[in-house]
Simulated scan of single mutants.
Amino acid sequence: MTSSITDVAGIEVGHFTDARRPTGCTVVLARGSAVAGVDVRGAAPGTRETDLLAPQNVVERVHAVLLSGGSAWGLDAAGGVMRWLEEQGIGIDVGPARIPIVPAAVLFDLPLGDQRVRPDAAAGYAACQAASRSAPAEGCIGAGAGAVVGKIFGFHRAMKGGIGTASVTAGGVTVGALIACNALGDVVDPDTGRVIAGARTEDGLHLLDSRRALLRGDAPRPMLAGSNTTIGVIATDAVLTKVQASRLATVGHDGLARSINPVHTLSDGDALFALATGASGRTPGMMTLAAMAAEACALAVVRAVRAARGVRIGELHLPAAGEI
């Protein structure tokens, strides 16, 4: 049975993929609300409502997290998520209205196809309509539709990225992750260090291994700041405080560091959100939860590229893992 973030009680996932070009968005719903945290590690992020999630600020619970393509334009899709939640009567009661809290993060997928096509409010709304407790589809769908990895030595030498999910259960508590991988660096097997997908040799026929290439002095050709990014959501049914949720988001980046190399670069906007539904009624301790979160994130990154499929747009060919 495939493990996924929807193994966490209280979590639903929905994708919207735009048929006009490779782009889309993905929503993680917590209809009953969830205690939330965030950790932004990349130097060029595109986000919304991250200040709200700082442990010292007042609001503790959110109702959804949006992951989107389209770069900064993709943040528009969060408005559609808010509208859908409002129609369901979901949000913080402020007297005259209920305000849904929807943090979001975006990745840069504009080089594939017509950049004027990007997720908007209608896309976010459609993703909510598609949401369910079923294991979400992986690969080139939703926020991962236009994801590309291994761009550190030029976009023409890169490979197709995507979105992936995984979960880990221990002691009656589950931690899941959903990761859209659009990294500048390579994706590697966290157990062996072997490159799975990433920068290719100049002839395009073999994997380069960017870490070794950089260490021997090969000159990188990174894209503009913000033109890469790995974004995702960690969710657990453990009972957590807002401070603990923020820490869970932080340690989730350990999983990114195991599976992406290099990661958290000046050209990436890496960001992870954490949601705690509390549905298990258990609190196993942050040491165990930290190990579970890092493991789930690493597995989700690997599954994102292994589920991806190659794409051809004009003369550009971006193969998928296993094709070379």
Rank of each mutant, 00 (worst) to 15 (best):
R211Y: 13
D114H: 09
G161S: 02
D186M: 13
A320T: 00
Q115C: 07
D254F: 13
P262C: 12
V106I: 14
S3K: 13
W84C: 03
I196C: 02
T6M: 08
G74L: 12
T288D: 11
V311W: 12
G281F: 15
L318I: 10
G10M: 07
A30I: 01
N228W: 01
V243M: 06
A321L: 05
A104D: 09
G89M: 11
R61W: 04
L112H: 04
G139E: 06
L52R: 01
F16N: 02
G144A: 02
A43H: 15
V302T: 14
S167F: 03
V301T: 03
A307W: 11
C128S: 09
A219E: 14
A9Y: 00
G185I: 03
L214K: 02
R48Q: 13
G204N: 06
R48D: 05
G185V: 07
T6E: 08
E87L: 03
A137M: 14
G226C: 03
G310Y: 13
R83L: 13
A77Y: 08
A298G: 12
V263S: 06
V62I: 15
C297S: 10
G46R: 01
L299G: 00
R133W: 12
G95I: 05
E138N: 10
A225G: 14
D218L: 15
V117D: 09
E87K: 06
S134E: 15
F273P: 05
A294D: 05
A121R: 03
I141A: 07
C140Q: 03
I141T: 14
A97C: 09
S3V: 06
R133T: 15
R303M: 05
E49M: 07
G171D: 14
E202N: 09
A249D: 12
V13T: 05
T265N: 04
A308M: 06
A180V: 10
R282V: 01
C25T: 00
L53E: 12
C140L: 02
P111S: 09
S210E: 01
G124I: 06
A183D: 04
T241M: 11
L256Y: 01
Y125K: 08
V117F: 15
A121K: 00
R309C: 09
T47E: 09
V81D: 12
T26V: 12
H253I: 14
G185M: 08
G322S: 07
G113V: 04
R21I: 03
S3F: 08
V35P: 00
I234H: 03
T241L: 05
A130T: 11
T17N: 07
A166T: 10
P96Y: 14
I179A: 01
L207M: 13
P103D: 05
V81Y: 01
G37K: 05
T288Q: 14
E49Y: 04
V40G: 00
A296G: 13
C140M: 03
V27A: 04
A249H: 13
G226T: 04
D109E: 07
V40R: 00
S71Q: 01
V102Q: 00
D120K: 04
R20N: 10
V168S: 08
L224Y: 07
M223L: 14
P103H: 09
R212G: 11
G172F: 05
D39C: 09
L67T: 07
E323C: 04
G252A: 06
L208N: 10
R216K: 08
I90D: 02
